[in-house]
């Protein structure tokens, strides 16, 4: 099994399916009265959040507590980081305090990789979102949600072969999109990315995707899932599109587009949603929307990830 989870790009199809299958077992626990498992008893995990987060941080914390791990929550705000402490010094401090695993979210792409590669600390690292690079547990929970909807109870051991997924919106700033593109490729799905040309990063032509600038054209073919991305205004330091209204008309899942969508097409969004901008409320709250299932499944997938990388001897688990 893998030692760290830094990106979905270096996750093999076999490892990815094994994680999704383990998540199925974790999901089965959700139904019972006592939801806790003793697997990570005595392990201390620190959630190192250098960026704001609601669902990812809480989801990781719930997953850790369900596995009986001890949890330390660290956010850059209100810590010595605001006094100028470097990532290295923070990590060295945590090492001396004796942590067994690090979950990190950082505004700089590659920060989790740095922790995994440097000799600052020798524990498994989980990327909970780094800059505009990757957000692997989000992609895993998206794949889990999709697989469950497509294959139902028969989903174990399966990929997403032949599934057609359209990813729409701010791909330029989206680590969710990057992680999804690689994972969906490993699992055999076909991905179309739709965005205004200004929000397609250079280099996208080397990704295993079809790029389109026309959402209506992309949605005119049968689609298993449409994944709306959040417009990341906080990362936009220049004008990527004229105004919100024009964006919604061109690339939002408006009521008109939602009405034309086949009833079997799933609507996904990693949250938090900008209602009225990339997605209308009618679509977000419809029965086709699996946005809340995504949140629920996030816990199961993160339990699977934490269980997989924090149990087992480290000598054997080095890939």
């Amino acid at each position: 099994m893998i030692r760290h989870l830094l990106s979905t790009r270096d996750l093999s199809r076999t490892s990815a399916i094994a994680l999704l299958d383990t998540a199925e077992d974790m999901a089965a626990l959700g139904a019972r009265e006592n939801k806790k498992l003793p697997a990570l008893r005595g392990k201390t995990i620190v959630n190192l959040f250098y960026e704001d987060s609601t669902r990812t941080r809480i989801s990781f914390e719930v997953a850790q507590k369900r596995l009986s791990a001890d949890v330390i929550n660290f956010s850059a705000r209100g810590s010595s980081v605001s006094k100028g402490e470097s990532l290295k010094d923070t990590i060295l401090t945590l090492r001396e305090l004796g942590v067994d695993g690090v979950v990190i979210r950082h505004p700089s792409s590659g920060a989790p990789q740095l922790l995994a590669e440097r000799d600052w600390i020798d524990v498994p690292v989980v990327n909970a979102g780094d800059g505009t690079h990757e957000h692997p547990t989000q992609a895993l929970l998206d794949a889990f949600t999709l697989r469950k909807e497509v294959s139902g109870d028969d989903s174990r051991g399966r990929g997403l072969d032949g599934a057609r997924v359209v990813i729409v919106g701010d791909v330029f700033h989206s680590r969710v999109a990057r992680s999804n593109i690689w994972l969906l490729e490993h699992l055999g799905a076909r991905v179309t990315v739709v965005a205004p040309a200004t929000l397609i990063p250079s280099g996208a032509e080397r990704w295993p995707i079809t790029v389109s600038y026309d959402l209506d054209a992309a949605l005119s073919e049968p689609v298993d899932a449409v994944m709306m991305l959040r417009v990341q205004s906080e990362r936009m330091r220049e004008a990527f599109f004229p105004n919100a209204h024009e964006y919604a008309q061109g690339w939002g899942l408006t009521e008109e587009r939602f009405a034309r969508l086949a009833p079997s097409t799933l609507i996904m969004h990693p949250g938090p949603m900008n209602r009225g901008l990339e997605i209308c409320s009618a679509a977000a709250d419809s029965s086709q929307s699996v946005i809340l299932q995504q949140v629920a499944n996030g816990v199961f997938v993160r339990m699977a990830v934490l269980y997989s990388i924090l149990t087992g001897t480290s000598e054997v688990s080095h890939e």
Binding site: M1, A18, D21, T22, E24, D25, A28, L37, P38, A39, L67, Y307, S308, T311, G312, T313, V316, S317
Partner: peptide, 22 residues
Amino acid sequence: LDVTMYRDDLHDNPMREPAPTT
């Protein structure tokens, strides 16, 4: 009844994949 998550040797052996409990 899968017992993988309850084993006392989870940290001394390679990672075990759990099996379903029904």
